[in-house]
Design a protein around this nucleic acid. Structure first.
Ligand code: MN
Ligand code: MN
Ligand code: ZN
Ligand code: ZN
Lengths: 146, 146
DNA sequence: ATACAAATGCAAATGATTTGCAATTGTCAG
DNA sequence: CTGACAATTGCAAATCATTTGCATTTGTAT
């Protein structure tokens, strides 16, 4: 029942963006591409520990990906950032549990929101993107309380 | 032409929430209540420097306000948080400049978004709130480029 | 005036993220 | 295939916003 995401051709992605095809970066993209939820750096470190990559290297890779818009950094958490593969055609939003801080991905754009973004663009000249995060309590945490 | 916000009765607010009416907290609420944009801690420290409050005290006050839902912390920036008075009847959103990192307040809720939140609530059991932030380039920064 | 919890100041700790620099590695032209 | 060279990495140290422990002060209620 676990939702599995569509894997991507990591090598091709790296090449398209002018990145070297290094073991870490290849693996990072693979991990991110099959994850149903955005992942913190700590998890990415654990899932790549067989490569023994340094934390600084992980951060540098992720920052490069974000810069290239290959990956999106989710800051809903405020403490540690979460990273999620950016899928060109699948614009997503997020929902965060205020109890366990789990961040789930809503795998589609909230209807009509993009249209509204156009209206709001009168305030700014150019709008690149928007981030929408809902905050609530997830089912698991609700069960834990009662 | 500067947009001025409606000031609030800081003393009353503190009392309602069971806080002591201390000089710093009173002043903080006054500053936040007339600010047209969310403010970082550094600015709040500057605007309250006549009181010589310690940074830790500032943070503790702000955290207490956020906990009491008197103030909203905006984390769109990811580096430093921004603080904005929470007005019960005026639900706002934000728009951030990716160039100068200015965060402006959109002083109303994006139409129909709250209705959509109800739909999304099928994913979670309970949804308390949502944060929506647009990212773009503000007029000032666009002018600076050309 | 007294009592007590809340708030503060100060200094030290945290913890995620960044940076400098030398060594390594992937890519590409020759 | 072989260098050359820029991109990537490892390691250690630095940053920087935010938090925390503890002793002291202050606001509020009785
Ligand atoms: Mn959207
Ligand atoms: Mn809204
Ligand atoms: Zn939860
Ligand atoms: Zn700007």
């Amino acid at each position: 029942m676990k939702k599995q995401m569509q894997p991507v051709d990591a090598a091709a992605l790296l090449e398209e963006h002018g990145f070297k095809k290094t073991p870490l970066r290849l693996l990072l993209l693979e991990i991110l591409s099959i994850s149903p939820a955005p992942l913190p750096v700590s998890t990415l470190q654990r899932k790549t520990k067989k490569l023994g990559a340094d934390l600084a290297t992980l951060y540098r890779a992720l920052n490069a990906f974000v810069e290239a818009e290959l990956v999106q950094a989710i800051t809903a958490d405020k403490k540690k950032a979460l990273y999620e593969l950016n899928r060109p055609k699948i614009h997503v939003h997020h929902i965060m549990c205020d109890s366990c801080n789990t961040v789930e991905t809503i795998p589609f754009c909230i209807k009509s929101l993009d249209q509204q973004a156009i209206n709001v663009s009168r305030l700014f000249k150019k709008i690149y993107s928007h981030q929408l995060a809902f905050v609530g309590t997830c089912r698991k945490c609700l069960r834990a309380v009662r």
